[in-house]
Design a protein around this nucleic acid. Structure first.
Lengths: 248, 248
DNA sequence: GAGCAAAGTTGATCTACATCAGATAAAATA
DNA sequence: TATTTTATCTGATGTAGATCAACTTTGCTC
């Protein structure tokens, strides 16, 4: 159940179609649209826009105009408290939608920073919204995507409120692994795009604890760590950690 | 900024109109609808349904049919992990909408438990959704409410990931205080509907820590605690705690 | 490829909070 | 009202993870 809440950020269905061109239809927009409706979507959605590593897609406080669909790349979203503490609220990869937090106030409430060279498609919210009024499938899809974000956030709360460092790291690695797998990448070997400090911020830990815990997992033979390259050797043991040794 | 993220769960605007009858129009549904549109909403929204203290409005795993608008009362929402750990994901009071997490999967992912005798109006989601297709104001409102929930969740993440016990408690008390104030109740004196354990679960602390910290605030003259009755004596000091003594 | 800045590792120590335990008070129930 | 149950408080002690510090590695930049 922890895994379910934590890991399922994107259902495989959303990526089952191959991505042939710039359009986001194949990525994070709904299936089942008529050709006409797709056409309409295409006229609304901008060409892919490149974002270089380190650049901000948007920043907290900026006026909200569009949602962004990640075509390729990797982003972190974070809120900064008044006194400068950063809380990473999520890591986002291809096929995911960013910026939904901004709808409520018409201003962005997070920073979205590219952690590798990326490409996004811009979805002007006013137009998307209007189209959604005419296309129930699209409307429903938007509700679902936002709801999924809420569920994901609840999972993170559970993690932050209840789990200990090892469990958090295990959940984090398994979540990443699963999300890479969904996208057709290796689930057992992947490259972390973020620093130990950013992982720590997301998981409510200090970077030293992240580092130590990764080392410990390596010593136990669960994973192999080579700087930012992670190889998952024994995923079952990681899962067992999460379940708090339920099985035995 | 911490306060902003934490505290603003409901804008005053939503409650400015007086509540005259059962309908939720005056509470958490949008203003600006035409009489016809209001009429339509009224036919969709059920009569208020009473929920006794301790009863579940819904439980994780149940199929999703409706959102619920709280007319009067107080609820907690919580997720339970496989190994039985409870994470309270929020406390909800009159005028707030519950159940949005369930849209993504068509199943509820939280338990919603009444912490006092309450009344809710049921909003059958299918019908609401359909109406929203015809009534842009309603559609936009639903997006905003869901977005606001995401922003609130990010605030909780910041709290759980970065703040220490005293800061968490201060944020919690100030948040409650503000939400009571918006509803026309005293912001300086209110009754906690939840146990210390439930507060702890929400804030990622053990009940003993909650108890101790409340006692400490009392010793410092910030608040007066009498079992579940809280009196806020020196809100500014609580705010200063939150801001990490920025001002000085 | 030398020099430098940023990221990561590892050890020693500290501390905020958890845990354990016992006492008290409130609330539910008979 | 008496009795059990549940919630709360407070003290003593333990510990996971923070903090501080030194060192190593990686990756830029000129």
């Amino acid at each position: 159940m922890i895994q379910n809440i934590q890991i399922r950020e994107l259902t495989p269905r959303h990526l089952r179609q191959t991505c042939t061109n710039c359009s986001l239809r194949e990525l994070c927009l709904p299936i089942g649209l008529t050709p006409d409706e797709m056409q309409e979507l295409d006229t609304i959605i901008s060409q892919a826009r490149p974002i270089k590593r380190g650049e901000a897609l948007y920043r907290a406080g900026e006026p909200f105009k569009s949602l962004f669909a990640i075509r390729v790349g990797f982003f972190k979203a974070s809120v900064i408290s008044e006194d400068g503490r950063e809380q990473v609220t999520g890591f986002h990869m291809s096929g995911e939608l960013m910026g939904m937090d901004a709808i409520s106030s018409d201003f962005h409430t997070c920073d979205a920073i590219a952690l590798e060279d990326s490409e996004v498609c811009e979805l002007p919210f006013g137009e998307i919204e209007e189209l959604a009024g005419d296309v129930p499938i699209l409307q429903r899809h938007l509700y679902k995507v936002m709801s999924r974000e809420i569920v994901r956030d609840h999972g993170v709360m559970l993690l932050l409120g209840n789990m200990k460092a090892e469990e958090r790291l295990a959940a984090f690695l398994l979540n990443l692994s699963q999300r890479f797998a969904i996208r057709g990448y290796s689930s057992s070997s992947f490259h972390l795009r973020m620093t130990r400090e950013e992982i720590g911020s997301y998981l409510g830990l200090k970077l030293e604890t992240v580092s130590r815990t990764l080392s410990k997992f390596q010593d136990q033979g669960f994973i192999k760590v080579q700087n930012r390259l992670i190889e998952i050797i024994d995923g079952d043991s990681l899962k067992k950690l999460l379940n708090n040794c339920q099985g035995e």
